[in-house]
Amino acid sequence: MRRKLCRGEGINVDQIATPQEAIQNKQYKMALIELLYQLADDDFILAFRGSEWLGLAPHIEEDIAYASINQATMGHAVMYYELLESLGEGSADELAHERKASERKNAILLELMNGTGSYLENPSYDWAFTVVRHYFYDIYKKLKLESLKQSSYLPLAQAATKIKMEQYYHVMHWKVWFNQLVLSGGEAKTRMQAAIQKVWDEFADVLSYGTYAADFSKYQLIEEENLFKQKWEVEMQQVFQKAGIDYPGPPSARKGNGRTGMHTEDLNQALSILSEVYSLDPQATW
């Protein structure tokens, strides 16, 4: 049985009786919307960066597998955008394609280009960076989904339950690549170490809940930020230990905090490509 929302000063949530009751509380709804934007924008932009590897992956089997992962990840973003649509934020297509970079809530790490060049002109992409970014993010995402399954907002908890069924396979896919390259030695290991450092320099931004962190936990939308970070750190320490790599300590966020609207030019470049076809006729049904 789901317990009722306690209204008034010092509002607290154990569990929400219904989504309708939850969103009647303005503060709760604002926190929920912020969390959904973070979840949707993260998966949306990373799925796009992954799609840029189509036809460029190391071998044909990986090309097919990676394309499937990106399609699933974009599907996860759609689920979150549709939850936002149900809360009156606009259509899912509008939220995905019409919002400016400054309105996006994705972590900066996830928007960074795969390497130099572009998909159509002299792409020189870094497979090591791609492997590390995806692996570390998917471990983070797996833990986050476990927490979201207990969310006080039932539609979000239900979405997390569905998504987590696919997430296991995503983690396993990148785990194989990560261990294979790190443990192989030589140039592969050297490139992986450089990629690990690059990802670690920005991963604190991924872990950030942004300015609504206190409300996220207050309304039990997701577990408390520091507790979640501790769980992720324990998981990552095991990853480094099994790979025979020294754990580098707490990650950084050198380029800023994407949760607060800080972004790089890489995001503008991505959004211009993502919205190119949609902008031809926003009213069309794709």
Results as ranks from 00 to 15, higher is better:
residue 177 W to E: 15
residue 64 I to D: 09
residue 68 S to K: 12
residue 181 L to F: 04
residue 159 A to G: 10
residue 88 G to D: 08
residue 52 E to N: 10
residue 113 M to G: 09
residue 158 Q to V: 14
residue 68 S to E: 06
residue 155 P to M: 01
residue 48 F to A: 05
residue 123 P to T: 02
residue 97 H to I: 02
residue 76 H to I: 04
residue 125 Y to Q: 02
residue 165 M to I: 15
residue 151 S to P: 05
residue 125 Y to H: 00
residue 134 H to T: 09
residue 164 K to A: 10
residue 162 K to N: 02
residue 121 E to F: 05
residue 60 I to M: 15
residue 75 G to Q: 07
residue 144 K to Q: 15
residue 161 T to N: 12
residue 64 I to V: 15
residue 152 S to W: 04
residue 162 K to L: 05
residue 170 H to L: 03
residue 64 I to F: 11
residue 74 M to H: 09
residue 91 S to K: 01
residue 128 A to T: 10
residue 65 A to C: 05
residue 50 G to T: 02
residue 98 E to S: 12
residue 145 L to T: 08
residue 153 Y to G: 00
residue 146 E to K: 13
residue 176 V to I: 12
residue 166 E to T: 14
residue 117 G to T: 03
residue 58 P to L: 08
residue 156 L to R: 01
residue 105 K to M: 07
residue 63 D to F: 03
residue 166 E to R: 08
residue 146 E to C: 12
residue 59 H to W: 15
residue 136 F to W: 01
residue 101 A to S: 11
residue 175 K to L: 11
residue 73 T to L: 14
residue 95 L to N: 06
residue 142 K to Y: 15
residue 136 F to A: 13
residue 56 L to I: 04
residue 60 I to N: 08
residue 179 N to H: 09
residue 168 Y to M: 11
residue 136 F to C: 11
residue 73 T to I: 15
residue 82 E to H: 06
residue 82 E to G: 02
residue 51 S to F: 04
residue 139 I to L: 14
residue 67 A to M: 13
residue 170 H to Y: 00
residue 104 R to I: 07
residue 156 L to G: 01
residue 154 L to K: 14
residue 100 K to Y: 14
residue 109 L to Y: 04
residue 140 Y to E: 08
residue 135 Y to E: 01
